[in-house]
Structure formats: structure tokens, C-alpha cells
């Protein structure tokens, strides 16, 4: 059976018409390849891939620094240098520090907490569009990728937190029992980051220009999040709705939460708990659902 143009050779060999291929498939229980799994099934698949997620995140961290001479040390140096630049800019040149007690600690906490969210969101936006070859080669729940990027940033944060705590101690703040709540704050923020990065992953996969635009959006967010200034102080004479909006901003809420624990030694107020929890739950449910809805379309077309 080597007749040319034998496009339907098998079917014709059986004396079948072309449509019957579908019937044949049904008879043997063959299914069409492309379909989106249900949400519970998708979560199960994702859980089955947990080892890949963690290994991928760790491997990316290792390979990122493998070409530089100082290697993994950059995980500590990068946050330190960042904090130094901002301190020079806002603490010395613009002399913000007059109004705020222990400005270096105030600033560094803000920068580190914001950087965590910023880096996760940036990574998430690239997680699909930057891994098209992987998506086009292997089958796995695509949420694996934004998840792996978020965990990668969590690993980086481990180092930054160490630096942060040392710096806060150096600036003269005492160790407090409240520091035991730091992991809680980080978990809430991580869950929020995860949701935001899943959301951005879908946007980044289909709107190719977002990676050009994202740095500007994130910088605007940085300036609006009270990293360099105190929101309550700056909005003193302004309508309270504005202050409300600024304080409800998730980045600002996580920053304030962390400052309460690390610097002011006070138990965060109830609104801070509510805001931080609300954003975490809202982002992760919304982001996950939004990402899952386009599952079968990633890496196509």
C-alpha cells in the first residue's frame, strides 16, 4: 500500500469513508488531545508536579548566578546595594529622614518587602512568554511556571530577610517577641504575590508588550506604596479617601505590617490584618482562576 496521495490510506484500506475515523476513534476510546482539565483535577496535577516546581526554582537560582565570580553571594549583595542606593538618595540627598525615626531601618524594610512583590510579579509576567519552548515540548499544568518563579523569589527573599534583620539590629532596634510573627507576614505576602504573578502570567502570555510597560507600572506602584515616606504624614491635609486608597494598596499594607513587627514593636492593628489577609485570599483565588481559564491556550498560535 504505497499508492501516492494516500492521505486516508488506512481508512480506505478498511473500505471506510473519511468521517468514520472519528467513529473508529470512539470505538477504541481515543480522545482528542487538547482539553482543559476541571479545576480540582488541575489542582491535583499541580500537586503531582510539586517536586518539579521546587527543583526548577532552585535550579534557576543556581544557574542565574553561575556565571558571576561571586556566585550565590549576589543573593545577599543585591538587596544590600539596593538599600544603600535608596538610603543615599532619600535619606541623605533628599533628607527625608528628618521626620522619621530610624529612617534607614524604615527605608530598608520598605525596599525589601516591595522588592519581593515586584520581583515575583515581573517573573510571573515572563514565566509563560519566556518559556515557550518548554511549553511547546512538554505536558504539564502551566501554572507550574508562575508557581516556580514565585518560589524562586521566596528563596531569594530568605537571604534578603537575613540581611534585613541584621541591618535592623545594627540600627539599634531591639529583638522582640513580635518577630515570631514575621513568617506569618511573609506567608500572607507570598500568597498575594502568587496570585498576582498568576494573573500577570496570563496577561504576559497574550499581551506581548506588557514586559516593556511593566517596569513603569511597578515603579509608579513603588512610589505610591509609602516605601520612602509615611503615608499618614504625607496625606495629613488631604481628603481621607486618598489616604484610605493609599493604605488599602496591598504593597503598602504588607510594608506597614512588616514595619510594625520589625521596627515599632507593636502588634499590627486589626485593619492591617484584614487588608493583608483580604489581598492574599482575593489575589490567589482570582489569579488562579483567571490563569486556569486560559490553560489550553498557552504557547499556542
Amino acid at each position: 500500500m504505497s499508492q501516492p496521495e494516500s492521505a486516508v490510506a488506512d481508512a480506505q484500506a478498511g473500505g471506510r469513508a473519511q468521517e468514520s475515523l472519528a467513529a473508529l476513534a470512539e470505538r477504541y476510546g481515543l480522545r482528542r488531545a487538547i482539553a482543559r482539565p476541571s479545576l480540582p483535577a488541575y489542582l491535583r496535577q499541580l500537586w503531582d508536579r510539586r517536586h518539579f516546581i521546587v527543583t526548577y526554582a532552585t535550579s534557576k537560582n543556581v544557574s542565574n548566578y553561575s556565571t558571576s565570580a561571586l556566585g550565590q553571594l549576589w543573593q545577599v549583595l543585591t538587596p544590600l546595594l539596593n538599600a544603600a542606593v535608596y538610603w543615599l538618595m532619600f535619606g541623605v540627598i533628599l533628607a527625608q529622614s528628618k521626620h522619621i525615626q530610624n529612617y534607614p531601618a524604615f527605608l530598608i524594610t520598605g525596599v525589601m518587602v516591595f522588592t519581593f512583590t515586584q520581583r515575583t510579579v515581573t517573573g510571573g509576567a515572563k514565566s509563560i512568554s519566556g518559556n515557550l519552548s518548554l511549553i511547546r515540548a512538554l505536558h504539564f499544568p502551566r501554572a507550574t511556571l508562575p508557581l516556580a518563579y514565585a518560589i524562586q523569589e521566596l528563596q531569594v527573599l530568605g537571604w534578603s530577610m537575613g540581611v534585613l534583620i541584621v541591618l535592623v539590629l545594627v540600627t539599634g532596634e531591639p529583638i522582640s517577641w513580635l518577630w515570631l510573627l514575621i513568617p506569618v507576614a511573609l506567608v500572607l505576602q507570598f500568597v498575594f504575590n502568587l496570585g498576582a504573578s498568576l494573573f500577570m502570567a496570563r496577561i504576559g502570555a497574550f499581551v506581548r508588550d506588557i514586559n516593556q510597560l511593566l517596569p513603569f507600572i511597578l515603579r509608579t506602584w513603588l512610589y505610591a506604596s509609602g516605601v520612602f515616606y509615611m503615608i499618614t504624614e504625607r496625606t495629613a491635609g488631604l481628603p481621607s479617601a486618598l489616604r484610605w486608597a493609599l493604605e488599602f494598596n496591598p504593597a503598602a499594607a504588607y510594608i506597614e505590617f512588616m514595619r510594625d513587627l520589625l521596627i515599632y514593636q507593636r502588634f499590627p492593628e486589626r485593619w492591617a490584618w484584614v487588608t493583608c489577609t483580604f489581598w492574599a485570599v482575593f489575589a490567589v483565588i482570582g489569579g488562579f482562576w483567571y490563569f486556569w481559564r486560559a490553560e489550553e491556550r498557552y504557547g499556542r498560535g
Binding site: G29, R31, R32, A33, S133, R136, H139, R300, G301
Partner: peptide, 27 residues
């Protein structure tokens, strides 16, 4: 492999065909 959608027609498979393409995941 189910990695590209059909414009017309269909691919029916038993289980999940896999492309020998693990190199994309390696670093």
C-alpha cells in the same frame, strides 16, 4: 502531542503522547 491546536480536523489519542523534548527543561 497535543501541543498545537487543530485548525480543522482532529487528533485522537490513547493516553498522552509525549514529545521527546525534555531538553527545553534542562539548564
Amino acid at each position: 502531542a497535543g501541543l498545537l491546536p487543530a485548525h480543522k480536523g482532529a487528533v485522537y489519542t490513547n493516553g498522552q503522547p509525549s514529545l521527546l523534548g525534555v531538553n527545553a527543561a534542562l539548564m
